[in-house]
Design a binder for these strands. Sequence first.
DNA 1: CTGAAAGCGCTTACAG
DNA 2: CTGAAAGCGCTTACAG
Lengths: 345, 345
Amino acid sequence: MITSEQVARLAGVSRTTVSRVLNGTGRISEEVRQRVLEAAATLGYEPNVVAQSMVRQRSRTIVLGMFHVEEGLSFSRLGETKHYFYLDVLKYIEAEAAEADYDLLQPSRPQDMTPEGYVRSLRTRNVAGAILLALSSADARIPALVQADLPTVFIDAVGQGRFATYIKSDNGNGARQVTEHLLSLGHRRIAFLTGSLSNMFGMERILGAQQAFTSAGYSLDPDLIRQSGWNTEQAYEAACQLLNERRDFTAIVAGSDLMAMGILRALREQGLCVPKDVSLTGFDDVGLARYTEPGLTTVRQDKEAMGRQAIQLLLRMIEGEEYIPPVTLPTRLVVRQSTGPAPIA
Amino acid sequence: MITSEQVARLAGVSRTTVSRVLNGTGRISEEVRQRVLEAAATLGYEPNVVAQSMVRQRSRTIVLGMFHVEEGLSFSRLGETKHYFYLDVLKYIEAEAAEADYDLLQPSRPQDMTPEGYVRSLRTRNVAGAILLALSSADARIPALVQADLPTVFIDAVGQGRFATYIKSDNGNGARQVTEHLLSLGHRRIAFLTGSLSNMFGMERILGAQQAFTSAGYSLDPDLIRQSGWNTEQAYEAACQLLNERRDFTAIVAGSDLMAMGILRALREQGLCVPKDVSLTGFDDVGLARYTEPGLTTVRQDKEAMGRQAIQLLLRMIEGEEYIPPVTLPTRLVVRQSTGPAPIA
DNA sequence: CTGAAAGCGCTTACAG
DNA sequence: CTGAAAGCGCTTACAG
């Protein structure tokens, strides 16, 4: 490995000068500057990132924390289709981090690690900040990170403090939009299959739907609200069960597009036609939503804004800004073919 | 931040001893060992990973290189459904790396970076090794990494050397299986919509199909082989175009499940019924394959083996093993409802 | 069994 | 404008 020592020797200057030239700090005579740059280029020198991290007590690294790991071994069982939406968000996180010249790190996390241990382990890695994706509200890392002075941005989880903020879609409004759409089509008995109510977005969506009902002067049958988990398979099973129990609803609002795909299959298996017999809606507007048969009416989340702004918020905190307010992104109703007029009773 | 200095002071020993106790190196009297452990626990001490990386000249970090970044800004346009398969693989990479106590790193990569610069940038990060996912055969990082003495495992790309090997599915055999399945159902004119032939797996699959044809005494019409890109949308468009040009085929072999979903839509829009009019097959067996209507006949890739063994191969190289031969994973034909007897001409 | 000292490759006061 | 020296937090010969 080429070191600054070698560059210094070739250029006939001190390591101090090499460092200054490469970092653009301090005044350097143009002639020396050129000599150093030339020497560095000749040797193919690149500063050792680890050494920089050591001396600066901070690296250009952002931790990416996800749902994956926390679930232990259970994830090897299911298709984990629930993560498809976040794959898109992740893409923009990566792009934005790359443009800001930050590495992304997924730290290994021993099973027995406490929330405090988690924060500590990030400290020992000298990371600049962390992005946490879609944690359950019960995740103990949230309060630990909010307490710590490590800049943190939560996506789809609430955590706010001096060095912590969050970004999410306007889930309540999205659910309201889609529910109003169904109400306007004449649907009154609508089933809600959500992944869970322990994620922020799960709860918000139900509340938004409820609000639409209330505003319209109707009420929502609590027995038509079901929590199944966010996977396609789980939604499929929950829909089968619901259909076995009762059939007095004319529409189903799924917690996500991927869940809707499982529900669609359950409806088909029961000989029910979408949207003639039952209308169906999704949430997210993943790329596949238009490829279902029929195309899925859904609520579009702005994945690009979510990913990019998460990084931008984090960078502002890294640069010292405190108490940044949370960001809520607007959603948009996308009407396709899976919703239609309620069948006449 | 708590340092080993503070632990040493509290335990009344030297930093050397603290280091030895925590790393389990050298002989230590039981009494001292206990004192150190206790002091470390009291202070909540955790060794600074960066300092360790600095002095050991190697960190417990594995680089994860993907297709994403190399594509510049183009990816913001499309749904990038093509990556869904690798999301599953990634999950197992993460799990296996976590179990081996390695961090995963996605380094930021400036646009203008040369392949040598890429390898150099990994060096300056003191990473232990790298996993590269599904690169195009033309990716210049492949030869650069094969040359370098940095342990590297390629997934779905060929790169082999002293410190480089690869793992992939038996794509040729998978394509052969699915083609034979169609031939046995009486199909003779089969269209092949592949993402591209510049990835190893794209080419292998076509060759496998060709082999099935030849073994059965038939031949494959080259004009029925189309390259569209791996996204659902691209496959949809290619299928539309193909259907406009000719309709003399009775089956379509898609390059992936996600491509098949786009093709399915194109067929439906033309009023063609699957499998009555046209049989359709996918590749990968992603979780969603069973949720299409009809369920998709496909070739299952062992995503868990792919992800886990990639890490295991890498760890062997990190531990010094050289010239590890590549691994080919068996595939399995999964017959669902999207394939049926060829219609009588 | 234990510790003082050197060193990993940088950056940054401090001095000139 | 430039450099010698200290220091970031560890580990590891070396010596005892």
